[in-house]
């Protein structure tokens, strides 16, 4: 065993990784896709969504926050875990107001793409039809909380990439919502449409205005290939 490499298995496949990586990063490096929603490369992990749940030595953990270790046995591509992930995605769908047929990010939405990948056909849980606010006050961007999955990517991107602190969370539990750092909506923040935080939203919650539907059906990121295929095209242990 080298001090700079740890060896472990994911679904029986031997994986070698630097010791300072998380399971999800190590899996990405070798072309193994672990479904995720709140995780984004270039941002510190949030551990919010639990979609990347894997089992390590039989115990469920977040792949995005759990460090690799010598000899661990990781389960990822199992029906049990996919079922759990499907339940999470389903809860996100029924808690929000997601109308994919007329949503401008359909075809590039990670929530929608995960639902397709995990074969979520139609939610079995009751929809909440919660009243959510749409902040359209900013001249160039909008924040549609109907589509927010509370992943916190915009919060982290604003802090760590834009150094602005535009977004945050407020309230707890079912009342939790994304908030903006102003008393009068997005228009009174220092957010611009070119900020990094404007490109990280996995759904159609935080969107640049007046660009909807410019990409034709068939050319959108997930029209032809499922989410995760960009990782899976890598060769294992290459």
């Amino acid at each position: 065993m080298s001090m700079n490499v740890v060896t472990f298995t994911i679904d029986g496949v031997e994986v070698k990784s630097a010791p300072d990586k998380t399971i999800l990063q190590a899996a990405d490096d070798v072309g193994i896709y672990i479904p995720r929603l709140c995780y984004l490369k270039d941002l510190p992990p949030g551990g919010h969504c639990r979609v990347c749940t894997v089992k390590v030595n039989g115990r469920p953990v977040n792949a995005c926050t759990y460090p690799v270790a010598e000899g661990i046995v990781v389960e990822n591509n199992t029906e049990e875990l996919h079922s759990l992930r499907r339940n999470i995605i389903e809860m996100l769908f029924v808690e929000g107001n997601h109308f994919c047929p007329s949503c401008e990010v359909a075809g590039k939405c990670e929530l929608q793409a995960l639902a397709y990948r995990l074969a979520l056909l139609t939610p079995q849980m009751p929809y909440l039809y919660a009243q959510k606010e749409l902040d359209a006050t900013h001249p160039d961007v909008y924040l549609d909380r109907n589509r927010c999955v509370l992943c916190g990517r915009c919060v982290r991107a604003s802090i760590y990439l834009d150094k602005k602190n535009v977004f945050g969370f407020e309230n707890r539990g079912i009342s939790m919502r994304i908030s903006v750092n102003s008393n009068d909506g997005l228009k009174d923040t220092n957010l611009t449409k070119d900020d990094k935080s404007m490109s990280v939203c996995p759904t159609g919650c935080l969107v640049v205005k007046r660009q909807g539907f410019t990409i034709p059906v068939g050319k959108r990121p997930y029209d032809k290939k499922p989410i995760g295929s960009e990782i899976e095209t890598k060769t294992v242990n290459s």
Partner: peptide, 9 residues
Amino acid sequence: GRFYWEAPT
């Protein structure tokens, strides 16, 4: 309440 560019869809 929706945006005008959404109307056609």
